[in-house]
Design a protein around this nucleic acid. Structure first.
Lengths: 343, 343
DNA sequence: CTCCTTTGCTGAACCGGTTAAGCAGACGGC
DNA sequence: GCCGTCTGCTTAACCGGTTCAGCAAAGGAG
């Protein structure tokens, strides 16, 4: 049988077909330069030999692509673990990449500088063809860096602060208006918004939208309070809010984790949800559906966004011009944690 | 200034230093063949030029490493999102890889065949130096495949079913005995164990251990019931269990997600936790600490396991012989969801 | 029949590293 | 003074693809 121990190369195919390396390359890449018959013969042999292109060799050629995209997640490991958002995003990205046979490099970093270092390394070592930026910050150093490195990138977020980079944004302000009007319609006046760090663009957008919507609805006791997305912050902040003499009757949390924490605190402090306190979570997830009472949540199709952003990045890598694109906005899913204000 | 637009190569360094490519390579890789003085000069120039090795070029050389490890996660996207386990594992792996400058390729697949296809592709295209196998199944086809492909791999799980592959296992049986004895000491006799799919090795190990420990403790009404790790399965199974006339007084869940779902069902059905029902979750996570009552859980250091398995894989890639290794066992963290059985 | 174009292929350079082989010069032993 | 060895470097092949220039043969136009 003369079993070939090493993986077959195009040279092996060329010998078997009695043609040159070049001809094989043309045939395998569907490029002109070989006759139909020769192409078919080469493809058949390649298939028989179980040939697959060496990603490293291919990437080495001038203009060659690595066939991989990168995603860096810069959040403390423990909070990250419990947030469905990232894995949902990742599975959406992967579903798209699977189509094109590309891969995803995932990196978890502990701080912003480490994240910048990763992009620098990826660019220098040619590890990826492009990157996806999430959790856009105000004056985000990453935007300037990837522009400077000429590393193709797409921002999930924006469009403010995305610089010249293409981005996929959702109209959080509109969703926030929906939430506020919903709570106002239920009679709530003292509403608190537990938001994420002010350094995050989407956090800022939501807080501003919250303020505007509340003013529009004539709610003068509504306010935002900053937390950091972790369960502990949710617990701490909620305790403080519920201990006030002018206790809010409704709370809007910027993520599901803090909302669940808040629900726990309410229970602990004997504040019944939803009769005494209404709770709305921003990201929806199984979590919101599992706890009791189940949480009213703003739900968006995260896997879809992942796929979309991957598609956009593929275009950006191919140097296709690309502007900001809008994702379907998050929709409010009323569940058991919200109800009319009791007198 | 003569700014160099393209990334510097060793050829650029060689020219600047007035030596050959080979000398530069020796210097940069800390290999003999250049004098101390020349080495220092070359390193300085490399640093000035901001040189970084091209991962693709390096990988192309005979015996060259790609500098990346692969992890495939084969679970439905939505359940995966909420389970802290994977992200914890990933961040542990990354922390280790960051030291050596390697990368992690993550792939999420929807079924076992797709997972096998990924390993085949990675091996054929030389995308990774090795892979980490999680969620070991009984008669796992992946073990045979990676052995066949000569793709270095480490199993997180086992040691049964890991074949000749090195593995990192934890003594789940011992942890399960601890759980059962703890519940027995609280007076519980009717204990149900909501386990994962029987096809998973660790699921089977835990179920058997549960049965043995219960028998040891003289609990003849203890039994395991299979579910699939999703929240819905947790909900459904718990409903069934709590509706029985001989309702269990304690439930042990094989993951945190199902435990949280179970807690919700108990609340819904008016079964108070912990006075009427005790609940133990297997994986610990922020989730267990956030819900009310907080969940008693078996906690293991998942990030540590991730780091350890990455270290082991690095050794396996370097063809160092490697046997099964034991991870610290999961420890029971009693919280508010367990208490003495009430008459 | 000649000239020009197209088709189909070959040969070789190239990407950016690694590494074996070769070689000049210094140095030491006897 | 001669030989052998070690040091420090160069040269060139090689990894597995892509791609450009070149070229022979076939086909069509005039």
């Amino acid at each position: 049988m003369g079993a070939l121990m090493r993986r077959p190369t195009i040279m092996d195919i060329a010998k078997a077909a009695g043609v040159s390396k070049g001809a094989v390359s043309y045939a395998l890449n569907d490029r002109p330069g070989v006759s139909k018959a020769t192409r078919a013969r080469i493809l058949a042999i390649a298939h028989d030999l179980g040939w697959a292109p060496s990603s490293t060799a291919r990437a080495l050629s001038p203009g060659g692509r690595v066939g991989a995209l990168g995603l860096v997640v810069d959040r403390p490991a423990h909070s990250l673990g419990v947030e469905p958002f990232f894995m949902q995003l990742v599975s959406g990205i992967e579903a798209e990449l699977a189509v094109t046979g590309m891969d995803l490099l995932l990196q978890v970093t502990e701080d912003a500088d480490a994240e910048l270092a990763v992009y620098r390394r990826w660019a220098a070592e040619r590890r990826v063809d492009g990157v996806i930026l999430v959790d856009l910050r105000v004056d985000d150093a990453r935007v300037a860096l990837v522009e400077d490195l000429a590393l193709p990138a797409v921002v999930l977020g924006g469009p403010d602060g995305a610089g010249t980079l293409p981005c996929l944004y959702s109209d959080d302000a509109a969703s926030m208006r929906e939430v506020v009007h919903y709570l106002a319609a239920l009679g709530h006046e003292r509403i608190a918004h537990v938001c994420g760090p002010g350094g995050l663009v989407h956090s800022r957008v939501r807080s501003e939208a919250f303020g505007h919507a509340a003013a529009e609805a004539g709610l003068h006791q509504a306010f935002s309070i900053e937390a950091d997305y972790t369960g502990e912050a949710g617990t701490r902040t909620t305790r403080k809010l519920l201990a006030r003499s002018d206790r809010p009757t409704a709370l809007v949390y910027d993520n599901d984790l803090m909302a669940v924490a808040g629900l726990g605190v309410a229970r602990e402090m004997g504040v019944d949800v939803p009769s005494r306190l209404s709770i709305v979570a921003w990201e929806d997830s199984v979590l919101c559906q599992l706890v009791r009472p189940s949480l009213t949540a703003v739900s968006r199709d995260v896997p879809f966004c992942g796929g979309e952003v991957a598609r956009m990045l593929a275009l950006a890598v191919a140097a296709e011009p690309l502007g900001p694109r809008e994702a379907p906005r998050g929709e409010l899913h009323p569940r058991a944690s919200t109800g009319p204000r009791r007198a």
